[in-house]
């Protein structure tokens, strides 16, 4: 017990080392949050293009080209590790030293999650009965209005749990931020370890923090799922 107290003091209290973790927590949250917002926005647009072409709802050549680009994008993003994407963004795309590491991380994870979100949204849109679409069109709504007022609200509700799970995964994925020397929880913990030569507390502590966040979020998703199920009646 005495040893634990000393270790705790050394790793977290002395020299205000807890700040590495606290700062890291802020970074992890903000990268995850902004990447999620960006990912939802871009993923939604990609899903609209993909499902419009899939349904044969448009004969526009422009849309077909756009759809082709989206497909390539999805293939590349989902076919390469997030880590190599992060390094490419940092060292090749934004090689200038002036750009904020946090912005690079947000963009990388945003572009990355957009690819997964797009497929979630697309399956949500495609799962809505074609009859809903026809009912909307027969009332006089345009394709876009039908999507906006009738299809996407239902699709969104259906995929909300899958979407939330995607962002829980994203939160854990941001733990590679340290590779561009951005201090997230993992990198903060690892910094403490390198200063104290004491791996147990910092690394296990960081793991515990992730675990708690994930458990809280997962519990939230389960509640959401139950709510949605009772709402559907």
């Amino acid at each position: 017990m005495q040893g634990f107290k000393e270790d705790f003091y050394l790793n977290f209290i002395k020299d205000d080392r807890w700040r590495y973790i606290a700062d890291g927590l802020g970074t992890t949250f903000s990268v995850t949050f902004f990447a999620a917002v960006f990912g939802i926005f871009l993923g939604f647009l990609i899903a609209l293009v993909r499902s419009t072409v899939d349904k044969g709802g448009s004969k526009s050549v422009f849309l077909k080209v756009l759809d082709g680009i989206c497909k390539v994008y999805l293939t590349v993003i989902r076919g390469t590790p997030a880590m190599i994407q992060l390094l490419i963004m940092y060292y090749i795309v934004f090689s200038s030293p002036n750009v904020s590491k946090q912005v690079v991380a947000i963009l990388t994870f945003g572009l990355n999650s957009a690819a997964y979100v797009a497929e979630i949204f697309r399956s949500g849109i495609m799962s809505i009965d074609q009859g809903q679409f026809e009912a909307g069109r027969s009332l006089g709504f345009s394709y876009a209005q039908t999507m906006l007022y009738i299809i996407t609200p239902q699709a969104f509700k259906n995929v909300l749990p899958a979407l939330a799970n995607e962002f829980i995964t994203l939160l854990k994925e941001t733990s590679i931020c340290g590779y561009i020397a951005l201090t997230d929880i993992t990198h903060g913990a690892n910094t403490i370890r390198s200063q104290t030569y004491e791996p147990y507390l910092p690394l296990l502590g960081a793991a515990l923090i992730y675990l708690i966040i994930v458990c809280v979020l997962t519990a939230g998703v389960s509640r959401l799922e139950r709510r949605l199920r009772t709402d559907a009646r």
């Binding site: 009965d129 009859g131 809903q132 009912a135 609200p153 239902q154 509700k157």
Partner: peptide, 11 residues
């Protein structure tokens, strides 16, 4: 237009 399966908007 009225359809066999109604197609009311469930949301």
């Amino acid at each position: 237009m009225v359809f066999q399966h109604f197609h009311l908007f469930p949301h």
